Each structure stands twice: as structure tokens, then as C-alpha cells.
Computed example of a mutant assay.
Amino acid sequence: MNRAVAVENAEGAGPFVLVCDHASNFLPPPYDTSLQISDADKIAHIAWDPGALGVARGLSQALDAPLVATTVSRLIIDCNREESRADLIPCLSETTQIAGNRDLSADEKAFRLNLAHRPFHKAIDKVLNERKDRGLPSAVVSIHSFTPVYKGKSRPWEIGLISENDRRLADPVLSDLAARGDLTVGDNEPYSPADGVYYTIRRHGEDRQLPCLMIEIRNDEVRTPDEEARWTELLAPVLKRAAETIAGGARV
């Protein structure tokens, strides 16, 4: 498997396939210096989704689900963007300039696509195709995290559920989480597909007509392994119940 992509629990037989587009902040040479960003930027949200991989790995174990994750920073290339989008290789992330991403040659863009973006999506396709061949149902869920404050505006949601046309997972998960009474749950907040953040789920979920959902957890909720474990323990039974609800009607 490509070194910029990791597949864990590939043979998992549960009803979910998990993906983590922004799992790592790793910048291999020469990008560790050529992007011209500070050490603080390299560990900030602009480089990755802190806490997302820990939750995704916990859910992979709890749900016996394959997990496909990136192993390089999204500042090199954002695997959750169409190849044609201007922010595929970001020159500006939130309010931070990424000088080393400006004026890239066609060869450099192609190198980065072939380093991480295309292998990531190929790996997801491979997992889904093999599960289909095995007769296993698949629902696709991506795990992300978001900042408590964005461009000066506070975000009240501890968790956001992002969906488009397919609400088979979003509706039961939203209902279950809201019923707890201790969470502020965003429905297409703090992002929605209209913000251009839905590429991976649209490609591998909606386009395949598979149940799908993008989960965003506020990153001050997943700062430690214990907090990641808490969210794993909270989400695993909720996702299981949602899958059972779907299975009671159409196949997952």
C-alpha cells in the first residue's frame, strides 16, 4: 500500500467503512521546510484534524470496520477536495498563508496527486469493492474534527453531522444524539456540502448509493486519548443502532 495511505482492519466485517481524510500532520521532506510555515502551524488544525484518527481507530475496533486514513498532512494535498478545486493544494488555510504552495508546476501537482490523493481514493474503492464481492453491506462514515473558533466566531456544537441527499444515517444519529440532552448537535453545521467539504463522502457514499455520513467533532473535545475513547464509546452504539435501523428497511 502507498506509504501516504494506511488501511487498518481491512477484513473487518461490520456494516461500516470508516475514512479519515485529515488524519495526519506529517510533512515528509522536502515539505517540512518548503511550505514555509511555522512549527506552530505544523501542529495546528490547518495541518490536520487533531483527534480524528484516535476516534476513527476506536470506532474501527468497536464496530469491526475497515479504516482508510491518510498519513501525510492536508497541507501537501487535501484528499477531501476534487482534483479540479483551487483549494486542493491550499495557498491559504483559514488565515494562514502557505507560501510554499504557490505557483506550483504541473509536475509538482501531479506528484502530490499521485503521492496521496489518488492512492487514498483508490484504497477506499478497493475496500468497498472487495466487501461487495464478499456480500457485505457497507455504510461509509468519515471522521473529522473542527476548531472551537473559526475566524473569530465561536462554534457551539460539540459535534456536527454533515449529509447531503442521503439522510439514512444522519437522521437516526441526529435523533439519538439530541435525545441525550447534554450535547449541542449541528445538522450540517459547522459545515455543509455547499462548503465544498463533502467530496470523499459524495464519491464513495452518495455516488455508490451507500448510506453515508460525515462526522465532525470539535477538537477541544478530543485533546487526549481518554477524550477520544469517550467519543468512541458514545458514537459506537449510536452508529450500530443507525445501521440496524437501515437494515430493517433497505440493505446497508
Rank of each mutant, 00 (worst) to 15 (best):
R118E: 10
P90N: 10
I98C: 04
L67E: 08
S142V: 03
A116G: 10
R208F: 01
D171K: 14
E83P: 00
A242L: 08
R131Y: 05
A4Y: 00
E189A: 13
A52W: 07
R102C: 10
V140N: 02
D125V: 11
R3A: 15
Q61E: 15
G249K: 15
D49S: 06
R180N: 11
A110G: 08
G135I: 04
A62N: 07
V238W: 08
T96Y: 02
L67G: 01
T245R: 12
E164W: 13
M214V: 09
W231C: 02
L177M: 09
R85A: 15
W48K: 03
T95M: 11
D125C: 12
L234Y: 03
R203D: 10
I246F: 05
R218S: 04
I89Q: 02
T71A: 10
L27T: 06
H144R: 11
Q61S: 13
V238C: 12
A4Q: 03
E83W: 07
G248Q: 08
L239K: 05
S154V: 14
H121D: 03
S154E: 12
V68S: 00
C212E: 04
Q36M: 13
I76C: 09
R155F: 00
S34K: 12
A56V: 05
K151P: 01
T224V: 03
C20H: 03
D220H: 10
I143S: 01
S93K: 02
L169S: 08
S175K: 12
E221A: 09
D220M: 06
F146T: 06
E233N: 13
A44N: 15
I37C: 07
T95Q: 14
T33N: 04
A110V: 09
A69Q: 11
R230S: 13
A6T: 11
L177D: 01
L177Q: 05
L59E: 02
I159R: 00
I76W: 05
R74F: 04
S138T: 11
H121A: 00
E216L: 03
P90T: 13
E11P: 02
R202H: 13
P237N: 08
A116W: 00
M214D: 03
W48M: 02
V238M: 05
L174R: 12
V7T: 14
T232V: 04
P148V: 10
